[in-house]
């Protein structure tokens, strides 16, 4: 339908090519550096491609540095906040979409409001409250903190998925004698499974990517998550860039892989249902 002149076509692809280079080059350089042996990292001019692939940086991270531990911590707190958020959000989204809730509009606005709070403001009370409770350096403090942004996000996204399931399905189940809980568990959840998976993965990703909460709520290196472990390496006197880039890869690659599966849910996830078409 849109005919474009050859000149226009060229301009189009040049735009896309430049954007692609700017987008991808930092990630290429991460990979390139992570796979360089120590001796090639500080070459001048730098090698844009080195055939001497080396996994020394990864080995150092996993054996000499506690990156396996950081990875495990990231996994525990991200999984914990995901399970907690998705479980609570499933109930809430069912309530929102299946019942008459007085003040539902105000509650939706409240959820939106929580997604807009500056996290740097919230880390102050979190740090003070968790200190008083003796929960600094605990997984539970991070799971609670991450759920504060993961739960509103999950509810918001799940409401969208639940609304797309016709109410007649609930009606049929209840007429057959099922309770609301049975209906939700046996009938609605299986239907909503693709949506639930998408919401769970996104919730996992935003927890995995969080930084400043863990920076404040953990002081013991054995409790660091990946992002804090990486930031900690940046502050070292002599930065080992190949190790740092390998660490960045350990944090980034799971995100990229999951993200490839999630792409089609993206608009809904990034705006969490906030923008209407």
């Amino acid at each position: 339908m849109n005919r474009t002149s050859p000149l226009g076509q060229a301009g189009l692809w040049i735009t896309i090519l430049i954007a692609a280079i700017v987008t991808v080059f930092p990630f290429y350089w991460m990979l390139n550096t992570a796979l360089k042996p120590q001796s090639e990292v500080f070459l001048s001019p730098p090698a844009f491609y080195s055939a001497n692939w080396s996994f020394d940086a990864f080995r150092t991270l996993l054996i000499e540095r506690p990156f396996a531990r950081y990875f495990l911590n990231s996994l525990i707190v991200s999984l914990g906040s995901t399970l907690l958020s998705v479980a609570l959000a499933t109930l809430a989204a069912y309530g929102f979409t299946r019942f008459h809730i007085k003040g539902a509009g105000a509650l939706i606005v409240f959820l939106l409001f929580t997604k807009m709070l500056p996290e740097t403001l919230l880390i102050i009370p979190y740090f003070r409250l968790m200190s008083e409770l003796g929960l600094i350096n605990s997984h539970i403090s991070l799971i609670l903190a991450y759920s504060s942004f993961a739960l509103p996000f999950s509810v918001w996204m799940l409401i969208g998925f639940f609304r797309s399931i016709p109410l007649e399905i609930d009606e049929a189940a209840i007429v057959d004698g099922a309770s609301r809980i049975t209906t939700l568990w046996r009938v609605i959840l299986p239907l909503a499974r693709p949506g639930l998976v998408a919401v769970a993965l996104f919730t996992f990703l935003i927890s995995w990517n969080a930084y400043v909460w863990a920076l404040v709520l953990t002081t013991d290196p054995s409790m660091f998550v990946l992002s804090v472990g990486i930031a900690n390496m940046v502050g070292e006197y002599r930065v080992q860039w190949n190790e740092l880039m390998a660490a960045a890869m350990i944090a980034a690659v799971p995100v990229m892989v999951m993200f490839a599966f999630l792409e089609r849910h993206l608009v809904n996830a990034l705006t969490a249902g906030a923008v209407k078409g």
Partner: peptide, 20 residues
């Protein structure tokens, strides 16, 4: 998908790469 990568990867990780 490719163009969205900088948004999906943790800002802390993106910033670290740019430091290098």
């Amino acid at each position: 998908v490719l163009f969205l990568t900088p948004w999906m990867v943790a800002a802390a990780v993106g910033a670290t790469i740019w430091l290098w």
